[in-house]
Design a protein around this nucleic acid. Sequence first.
DNA 1: AATGATGATGAGAATCTTTTTCATTACAAG
DNA 2: CTTGTAATGAAAAAGATTCTCATCATCATT
Lengths: 139, 139
Amino acid sequence: MDNQDIRKAGLKVTHPRIKILELLENSSQRHVSAEDVYKMLLDNGEEIGLATVYRVLTQFETAGLVTRHNFEGGHAVFELDRGGHHDHMVCVVCGKVEEFIDPTIEKRQREIAKSHGFEMVDHSLIIYGHCSNPKCSVG
Amino acid sequence: MDNQDIRKAGLKVTHPRIKILELLENSSQRHVSAEDVYKMLLDNGEEIGLATVYRVLTQFETAGLVTRHNFEGGHAVFELDRGGHHDHMVCVVCGKVEEFIDPTIEKRQREIAKSHGFEMVDHSLIIYGHCSNPKCSVG
DNA sequence: AATGATGATGAGAATCTTTTTCATTACAAG
DNA sequence: CTTGTAATGAAAAAGATTCTCATCATCATT
Ligand SMILES: [Mn+2]
Ligand SMILES: [Mn+2]
Ligand SMILES: [Zn+2]
Ligand SMILES: [Zn+2]
């Protein structure tokens, strides 16, 4: 994941794009909002406009470098496309995100789509729950 | 699904609530946005404020009368809770929504949540694709 | 390395969805 | 019917994202 990926996407290799890609690679949080990216860049002394962050993230998504998720909360979160597809589990208390992939579910989805005459292009599976942290448990 | 359901939710039986519930029952579209509801009510000659529509839909959701979905598109859609849980398939071209339920997937989700130490409280599964309408097919 | 066409950026305005505020109105219990 | 309290509508506010446009940076070409 380097500047060549930006170039291959038909985009100029600019300072904001380089820094945003670096941040997505090095951030301790895999799943970040545009606002998160903006603020983390500021913390790093990079004064990149919020509009640019939104623009670049959308371009990276189109280029297949980044995936956008619509978790609950009214704002999108983004993550760098490492390896392959996976689904998500989100703690409704602390917001912790776990990733998983289940071949059985993936297979059934394709079958179900087909049986309804749909050509599946994407899917979104999010499990909401209480994570194992005692502070997040129900009782 | 009648006024008693509103009362049982601890809410006063008001004109806006009655009309919104009626509309959700009788609308030809099962999945509607707040804006949709607002406009359809206007078409019926009911001048109910948009803020009230949002408030009531949220209250109905809390009361378990209505379910909210975060499909792509930046706005939530709501549907009356008839019968039980189901998942969704959305055509990325025409927006058509199909519903389905798959016991295998439901079961695997519970197992996966448990294996990650999560207490599942909800989940969202949306398949995006091209529906069988020729206008929506890839070619 | 200098040039120049074109794409990219930043700031702020604009847009879109949803929530909040607050004065007024309507429900429902007595 | 009276009356306390919840509900409503209008408008403002808030939050997320996109757009506009003047300025700037990148990069293919000289
Ligand atoms: Mn992920
Ligand atoms: Mn449905
Ligand atoms: Zn948690
Ligand atoms: Zn379609």
